[in-house]
């Protein structure tokens, strides 16, 4: 029995992990684009971006997910999402990427704006190009400042992936709950649900160590 449950939970956690990674891969660069938009000197673009960020951050991810998954099907003749788990995963990925890109963009913006203009001006009077100033002077200082808030946000993301269960994505909690209501010939099993918590704890524990290590690596300057 134990092996059956662990096998099913592993499969669920694989889905959790996939959603987590796809969200990071999409939201980390998209967040940068959004942060540039929210700092644009072109006022309409700046306001549009900031409004979108405000709406996304001000409403629940669960609501966004439900809207993205169900509403297009209501408005079009049929749902644009492929059937089954593939469609659920695609919809989840898109909702998560958009949501997290907005959160990341605010962290980036804070990081970029916290670098004193003097750093850029010092680079300019030394004849550096904009590009050189970004890559050689400001980037690492920005990274140092965004690592702590980013690590908080990323650990939240690990837990947030469970929200995808609302559209029946078969992530780890879905897999654990299945043993309670009946699956693989078992029903009424409570411990698999508790056991899903172990996955989160171990994974987040690992991430915490990783971010702690990165912070320490960047500790050599202020």
């Amino acid at each position: 029995m134990f092996l059956t449950v662990i096998g099913a939970l592993n499969e669920g956690f694989l889905q959790t992990l996939k959603l987590f990674l796809v969200t990071l891969i999409g939201a980390i660069p998209l967040g940068l684009v959004v942060s540039f938009g929210s700092m644009s000197r072109f006022t309409p673009l700046r306001w549009l971006t900031r409004t979108v960020v405000w709406v996304i951050r001000g409403t629940p991810l669960m609501l966004q997910l439900i809207i993205i998954f169900y509403i297009p099907g209501q408005w079009l003749d049929r749902s644009p999402w492929p059937g089954g788990e593939t469609g659920r995963f695609m919809a989840s990925s898109i909702a998560f990427i958009i949501n997290y890109a907005c959160y990341f963009s605010e962290i980036y913006r804070g990081g970029i704006q916290s670098i004193p203009v003097g750093q850029q001006e010092a680079g300019m009077v030394l004849g550096m190009t904009k590009r050189q100033i970004f890559f050689k002077v400001t980037l690492l200082q920005m990274i140092k400042r965004i690592v702590p808030p980013m690590s908080n946000e990323i650990i939240t993301l690990v837990k947030d992936t469970s929200i995808a269960r609302i559209i029946s994505l078969q992530e780890v909690i879905w897999a654990g709950y299945a043993f309670l209501k009946g699956s693989h010939g078992y029903s009424g099993l409570t411990w698999p649900l508790f056991f899903t918590g172990v996955y989160y704890l171990v994974f987040n524990g690992g991430l915490t160590l990783l971010f702690g290590w990165v912070e320490k690596k960047l500790d050599y300057f202020r």
């Binding site: 004193p116 003097g118 750093q119 001006e121 002077v137 690492l140 050599y220 300057f221």
Partner: peptide, 10 residues
């Protein structure tokens, strides 16, 4: 500059 503006990571 008045406030040096050295690059802290170097």
């Amino acid at each position: 500059f008045q406030n040096f503006n050295l690059f802290p990571q170097y």
